[in-house]
Amino acid sequence: MFICTPDLGTPCDDISEFLSKNPHPDMCLFVVKKGFSTEQIWQQIHVLNEKTGKPTEEFKVVLPLGYEPKDFPFKSFTLEQLFNELDKVIELKQTTYTRSISSPQSEDQLDRIGKHTYTTVNVVLLGLAGTGKSASGNTILGRKHFVSKPSSNPVTTECQAEETEINDLHVRVIDTPDMFDDETEPSVRDKHVKRCKELYESELCVFVLVMHVSRFTDGERDILKKLENTFGTKVKEQTVILFTRGDDLEEADMTLEDFLHSCQPGLKEIIEKCNNRCVLFENRSSSSDQVEKLMNTVSTVLKKTAKID
């Protein structure tokens, strides 16, 4: 089904009305013509954000023929790329539908997550700005999707999601901005939390708390309390701690076990409350072993969650 909305200049709320009847479209396309102004398009996307409440990154700009994507502030696609994206959506829906009507899962699949069937497992990356959430998300995906670069300002400003298949398991990786900065306006923080919850909805979910292995800040000392206030008191049972910058330990000739044994008491307390579920990432490495370890830990969390349910 394609829904075509009126021009943005139309003095009516038809766009909001359409989306209220279809709150979860598979794709939101913003079609532009030749000679478009990047600044004007970006402003119009923000108008759509205000009218619909949908994050700016959900609007995919369809470029005119002859244009190629470049460093626009918005997501842009050629028609060929757009059809590839549509193919992915169709394939995902077919896979989900097949799983929902198929016979019981194989013993191996059931062993992954207890006796619960599934369509998607959500991996939600949380943590302070600069800890490497986006880079870790790209490592899990096996490709660069989330913007990750050195910066004195937060790079990720909206919740984003991308999906992949890992060991026959459909995984949705959700990257988030820093939702625990005390200087962030409560209304902005609430907006991020709401969007994050919309992305994982009622599906199986594991929270991955991303921390820099060589740095433990004052803002992280009470991060579990902030997590509980945001996602509920049982969040510790669904949390895995992911330490980034694994090369720092390698240079110090330390293993992860060495680090965990000698880390600060405040950090050790957080680790213990998360039942010592820790993995180490070096995001500049292409090794699949680190992702495998994370997913094994995620499976362990899902099994326990299924038993609790």
Rank of each mutant, 00 (worst) to 15 (best):
I3H: 12
G9D: 11
T10D: 15
P11R: 01
D14I: 03
D14H: 02
I15E: 01
I15S: 03
P23N: 10
M27Y: 14
L29A: 12
L29T: 00
L29V: 03
K33F: 06
F36P: 04
T38G: 03
E39A: 05
Q40T: 15
I41D: 10
I41K: 11
W42Y: 06
W42K: 01
W42H: 12
Q44T: 13
I45N: 01
H46N: 11
L48H: 02
L48K: 05
K51S: 03
G53M: 13
E57K: 12
E58P: 00
E58M: 02
L65P: 03
Y67I: 01
P69H: 07
F72M: 02
F74Q: 08
K75W: 08
S76R: 02
F77R: 00
T78H: 09
L79G: 00
E80P: 03
L92P: 02
K93P: 09
Q94K: 07
T96V: 12
Y97V: 07
T98S: 05
S102C: 06
Q105Y: 08
H116Q: 14
T117H: 08
T117A: 00
Y118W: 09
N122L: 07
N122M: 07
V123I: 15
V124Q: 13
L126N: 02
A129S: 14
S134V: 00
S134I: 05
A135R: 03
R143F: 14
K144N: 11
K144F: 02
H145Q: 15
H145W: 15
K149E: 14
K149M: 10
N153A: 09
P154F: 01
P154T: 08
T157A: 08
C159N: 06
C159G: 06
E162K: 14
E165W: 14
N167S: 11
N167D: 05
V171M: 10
R172H: 05
I174Q: 04
D178R: 10
F180P: 05
F180D: 07
E183A: 10
E183Q: 08
S187P: 04
V188H: 08
D190W: 15
H192C: 02
E201W: 05
M211A: 14
V213E: 03
V213F: 00
V213H: 01
V213K: 01
T217F: 00
D218I: 00
E220R: 10
I223Y: 13
K226G: 00
E228M: 12
G232S: 13
V235A: 12
K236H: 11
Q238F: 04
T239D: 08
T239G: 02
F243N: 09
T244A: 02
R245Y: 09
D247Y: 01
D248L: 07
L249C: 07
E250M: 05
M254Q: 14
L256Y: 07
L256I: 10
E257K: 07
D258T: 02
C263S: 12
C263A: 05
P265R: 10
P265W: 12
K268F: 11
E269A: 14
I270H: 10
I270V: 15
K273Y: 03
C274N: 09
V279D: 01
L280E: 09
S285N: 13
S285E: 06
S287V: 13
K293M: 10
M295K: 00
T297R: 06
S299C: 13
K303D: 13
A306M: 06
K307N: 04
K307V: 13
